[in-house]
Design a protein around this nucleic acid. Structure first.
Lengths: 175, 175
DNA sequence: CTTGGAAAGTCAACAAGGCTGACATAAACT
DNA sequence: AGTTTATGTCAGCCTTGTTGACTTTCCAAG
């Protein structure tokens, strides 16, 4: 009852090489799903509060974050990372450019491309938002300890779509 | 430069009791933040595809999930768990009731309350959505292994708001 | 028994942020 | 010269969140 039919031969409370696989029960998986749901709310809560004051939203935060992370990135690359339509991104990007947080420069090699960078003001907002978000993560990491953090990263990487995993790994290289 | 000023005396590459605290650097925190972002997209991707066919959204999924988890729950309790306004929840709940996936029964002890349960049809949809979501989680758990999963849970619990943490823990008891 | 307030439902209006489709422009590529 | 690519933009739609106002039901305290 606790185990799914899709688990195949390994699902449930069977044993393999003397190791219990109780962590693969449907109950454990449900716990993980609920943990993701509640944690993601906490994860976005602090930046959201700051953004609300400035009449920006989560979409602006995401754009700012990834422009900060990959300075000079093109619109197309950002679209791929964020996984939204260009119309949706453009609406966000336009307001950020109008407000002087982001600057868009025509490409040198390929003049069709626009390269995006944060302005001074953009950097400042990024810092405030990033610090708010990191503060909570830092406390969580500290409480959980290094081994838990390693496991946290491992599981999250496995949950990602392969394509997103690629983006995730590419960001690592750039840092 | 890599370390934040908000870290206090413990931030950065300092050592404490012979243990490196490199996992608390801003870079590591940023990696965690990005992992959360990309992973959450994967986390919701499979149910989202199924829901799109049935012209439901993520909000319907959340309602179905938690009604399944706590059968007979009241609207107020659900509001607390989901963290949305009653108007927002009501819109979702109304369509689910109209479509015969959820039934709302007047409370026996307190007849102002409505107790929510999934109908047969609701159970079926829950199973399909839940299985789709668990399938990915199961694969991720299997790849990462039990120790990583334990760490994953620990960190997520620390990220939650205390209030949400309470809800999370209460769900555990009921299961 | 009356009344205060909690629980629930509903209506209206609005905003953010997704989406599709259509179309324009400039630049690069073939 | 013609096609493809990168970007931007307009219009319209949907979901899902919000606030505010108002009603109905009904428990419980005075």
């Amino acid at each position: 009852m606790a185990d799914s039919s899709l688990g195949g031969p390994i699902g449930g409370a069977t044993r393999s090489s003397g190791e219990t696989l109780l962590f693969l029960t449907d109950d454990q998986l449900r716990r993980g799903i609920e943990a993701m749901f509640f944690a993601y709310r906490g994860f976005t809560a602090d930046p959201d509060r700051i953004l609300a004051e400035k009449s920006y939203g989560r979409a602006h935060h995401r754009a700012i974050h990834f422009i900060h992370r990959t300075p000079g990135t093109t619109v197309n690359n950002l679209l791929d990372i964020l996984g939204v339509t260009k119309q949706s991104l453009n609406r966000v990007l336009r307001t950020l450019i109008e407000d002087g947080l982001v600057e868009s420069k025509v490409g040198v090699k390929d003049r069709r491309e626009r390269h995006l960078n944060l302005t001074e003001e953009g950097q400042e907002l990024e810092k405030v938002l990033g610090e708010a978000q990191r503060k909570r993560m830092r406390a969580a990491y500290r409480e959980a300890g290094p081994d838990a953090v390693a496991g946290f990263q491992q599981v999250l990487q496995q949950i990602m779509d392969p394509k997103m995993r690629t983006h995730f790994d590419q960001l690592k290289e750039g840092s």
